[in-house]
């Protein structure tokens, strides 16, 4: 299923070079892209997704026909029910949605029976669960995540990380994050973006999602934070 998806080449914004001859291959599993603000993390993600971002890639971008997308905001539509929100992309794509499958996905993310409710009756964590169910509904081989958990409180964030990781285990995932602990916790591959280049970071050899309380994780997180601050 997983092909040679990714971004290869140089990315420019206006006349300035944002990323210089990078070679980002998205293998199966979680790829976490880490970097300081303004380094171009989100630009890479939007370029791969084919979304407008004001940057141009002179090189090659390859993506599957169908991709999953989850942003920092939940992007729930306030006038649609929770269930309709889960089925929104099917409706947008002109496919006939399967309500039974949408209900089942809501149950998978721990929200059985809330399908008829409006998004504004849900908490922030619940809303992001609905967004995850909507992403899963796409059944895409490549899923792109743009800091999807950064607005959540730490406990909810950890729960959502575990849930998303379990649900997206078999797919290729590219997650942009500014949190070194999050990247090291979930990433099969962790990539650091700085000085217009990508550098691979070797995460500790622990079962994923990695235990933040493990001494090796604490050490790796600290070391990665130091590199981020220097970047």
């Amino acid at each position: 299923m997983t092909g040679d998806w990714g971004l290869h080449g140089t990315v420019r914004v206006g006349g300035a070079t944002l990323l210089d001859g990078i070679d980002l291959r998205l293998g199966p599993g979680w790829n976490c892209l880490l970097g300081p603000s303004g380094a171009g993390k989100s630009t890479i993600l939007r370029l791969i997704a084919g979304l407008p971002c004001g940057a141009r890639c002179s090189g090659r971008i390859s993506r599957p026909e169908r991709i999953g997308w989850m942003a920092q905001g939940d992007l729930l539509q306030p006038r649609l029910s929770v269930l309709q929100n889960v089925m929104l992309l099917d409706n947008l794509a002109g496919r006939r949605p399967d309500p039974a499958r949408a209900e089942a996905l809501l149950a998978d993310v721990g929200l059985a029976g809330v399908g008829a409710r409006r998004p504004d009756t849900l908490s922030g964590g619940q809303r992001q669960r609905v967004a995850l169910a909507r992403t899963l509904m796409q059944d895409a081989p490549l899923v792109l995540l743009d800091e999807p958990f950064s607005a959540l409180d730490p406990a909810t964030r950890a729960t959502m990380q575990d849930l998303a990781f379990a649900q997206l285990r078999d797919r290729a995932v590219l997650m942009v994050t500014h949190d070194p602990a999050e990247a090291l916790r979930l990433g099969a591959r962790v990539l650091l973006l700085h000085a217009r280049r990508l550098t691979a970071v070797l995460p500790p050899d622990l079962p994923v999602p990695r235990d933040l309380a493990h001494p090796a994780m604490a050490q790796a997180t600290g070391a990665l934070l130091t590199r981020l601050r220097a970047a």
Binding site: A49, A71, L75
Partner: peptide, 19 residues
């Protein structure tokens, strides 16, 4: 963000308009 979803779903103008 909503328009991003339309782009991801490859929705045309008509369906983006309605939804």
């Amino acid at each position: 963000g909503a328009l991003d979803l339309a782009r991801i779903a490859d929705a045309g103008r008509g369906r983006s308009f309605i939804w």
